[in-house]
Structures are given as C-alpha cells and as structure tokens.
C-alpha cells in the first residue's frame, strides 16, 4: 500500500474493497453523503475512534469492533441503531489482504446487526504516522417514545445488573498480544447488543435508569463514571460478578483485575428495584444475556465510592485507573 505518486489508483482500489465488503444501496449511489428517511421523535448519535493492537484477535478484529462499538453506544440510550458511517486512517505499507479482511468483517458485523454503513472515507498516511489501521465510526439511532436513559439517573437503592461475564475482550486481546495459550481459547465478547437492549426496554421500560457498555477501563471505570454522574455510591458483591474461569486464570497469570479489563459485548443496567427481577429474566432469555446477574446496588455515599464486598466480608474501594494496571504493593 502506498500513497502519494500513484495514489489515485490506490485510493480507488481501497474504495472498491470497502464498497464491496459493505455493499448497500446508499454506498452504491456513490455520493459524498447519504440521504435517508428520519423517523419521528428523538434521535441518538455517537462517534468512536478504534485503535487496537493486535488488529486481529480471537473472537473479532478492529472491523467488527468498530461496528459493535458504535451500535452499542447508540443502544445504551435505549435507541434502535439505524445507520453508521466509517472513516479509516491506513498506514502506508499496510497489507491489502489484511485491509480486505477487516472490511469484510465489518460488512458481516453490519449485516448481522442490520445496521448499514451508509457513508465513509479512507486516508492513507505515511509509515509511522499510524499503527496499521485506525477506524472511526459514527452511528445514529431512534429513541423509543417515553424512554430517557442517562448516566445521572441512578438513585440509592437502584439495582445493578451486568449482562454476562466480564473481562473477556481485554483478556482475549492481551493473551494474543502476549502470545499466551490456555487450554480453552479466550474469545472476545465483541457483539452488537441492541437486540438484547430492545428486550430489556420491553421488560422494564421507564423503570430503566441507565445502561452503559463497560468498554475501556472495564466495569470499574464505568461504575465510577456513573457514581460521579449520579452522585451515588455503588456496592457490588465480588461473588456475584460473572467471570469465566479461563479469564480468571489469565488475569491471575497477568496480574490483572478483571474489573479493570475492557468488554465489547457486555452492558450494565441500573434499574428501579421493583423492576429488577423482570429485567433479569428478560436478559437471561436473550442469548447475549444468558449469564446476566444482579451484582449490586446504588447506595447513598457523598464520596461516590464504588465498593466491592469480598466473599469474606471486607469491602475494598474499586477505583478507576489512569492508565495500565500498575503495582501498588510496596
């Protein structure tokens, strides 16, 4: 892959790769923008840049991740995702075959989710100015009538649920990066959650306070963000938080806390206590919520601490981290 001289032909080649992989009516029109029918009512919009190393990991790659990421961010408002856009920054010298693989994976993810990528852009930059491929996706969606989810809506007493096991994505990526092998391969949980969300909205409706996908920084960062936004604390139970045994083992090996590890196909929900049982039931009925669990509750706490009760009673503060997990024990 090269840019500059002969760049025009190359640009065409790249555009073709994406058009083929993501093919739909809008892209076929070949305009610089896409025009679509807007539904009545409120809309949700999100944008996210994806940088991940390695680009291909067990259970997904940067392409599917970019689709799922945008779809999920829209879905966390309770909205039905409608359209995506995508922009690619490609490092000079990046193998075309890998690019095609990413494009195809993106197309497959978009088709499976039923959310088309209707406009996009590609740029090739000099070697060293990017790391392989960076993708930015933007999504729009339609918010159902009467639903108003927001990070500042958690109230003391509200129940906290997670849709399944945590840490899968981050550990899959890290195992790949560190070349670790386990008896049972750890796959990223990367998935589009809007189907699960639709079922949850149907089950709990206005009793739902908020949803969030605990991506970078993991459950710990997400809960701390919500605690700040909502001015509450959270109490979670270590034993109630689903972690796959192989993920736990990998965390033990690498010295990671699964609470700080990224997820790409999980969500947490805060719901009024009376609606929690119905919500849990609806989540468990969906394939992506099979392992859903109630893991704690929002509590009154002027300091907005997230605290985790361990199996033997003590409670520790679950903090968000400035960056990678550093040691603390002196």
């Amino acid at each position: 892959l090269s840019h500059g001289a002969g760049g025009r032909a190359m640009a065409q080649l790249i555009a073709d790769i994406f058009h083929t992989a993501l093919d739909n009516d809008w892209l076929r029109q070949g305009n610089d923008q896409s025009v679509f029918e807007a539904p009545k009512g409120r809309m949700a919009m999100t944008t996210d840049a994806f940088v991940v190393s390695p680009l291909f990991f067990p259970g997904g790659d940067i392409g599917s991740l970019a689709v799922h990421g945008a779809v999920n961010d829209i879905a966390m408002s309770g909205a039905k995702p409608l359209y995506l856009s995508a922009s690619f920054i490609i490092e000079e010298g990046f193998p075309l075959s890998d690019l095609a693989r990413i494009a195809e994976s993106m197309g497959a993810a978009s088709r499976a989710a039923g959310v088309p990528v209707i406009t996009g852009d590609t740029k090739v930059v000099e070697r060293g100015k990017a790391d392989g491929v960076f993708i930015t996706t933007t999504g729009v969606g339609a918010v159902p009538e009467g639903l108003d989810l927001s990070g500042d809506k958690a109230r003391p007493g509200d129940v906290l649920l997670v849709s399944g096991s945590i840490g899968d994505h981050g550990v899959a990526v890290m195992s790949k990066r560190e070349n670790l092998e386990f008896d049972c391969e750890i796959l990223s949980d990367s998935a589009a959650l809007h189907g699960l969300v639709a079922d949850m909205v149907a089950a709990a409706g206005a009793a739902l306070r908020l949803m969030r996908d605990p991506t970078r920084g993991g459950l710990a960062a997400t809960l701390n963000e919500i605690a700040q936004q909502s001015r509450v604390g959270f109490r979670i139970e270590e034993a109630a938080i689903p972690v796959k045994p192989e993920v736990a083992a990998a965390c033990e090996l690498l010295g990671l806390d699964p609470l700080n590890v990224a997820n790409e196909g999980k969500l947490i929900a805060v719901v009024a206590p009376e609606a929690a049982p119905a919500l849990l039931e609806a989540m468990r009925a969906h394939p992506l919520g099979r392992d859903a669990a109630i893991i704690g509750a929002a509590v009154e706490d002027e300091r907005r601490f997230v605290q985790m009760t361990s199996s033997f009673g003590g409670a520790r503060i679950v903090d968000w981290l400035a960056g990678e997990q550093l040691p603390r024990i002196c």
């Binding site: 033990e252 090996l253 690498l254 010295g255 990671l256 997990q325 550093l326 040691p327 603390r328 024990i329």
Partner: peptide
C-alpha cells in the same frame, strides 16, 4: 515481576 502485585 510476573503478574504485578500478584508477585508480591
């Protein structure tokens, strides 16, 4: 330091 704090 295999496993960070785990090693401690």
């Amino acid at each position: 330091l295999p496993g960070g704090d785990r090693a401690a």
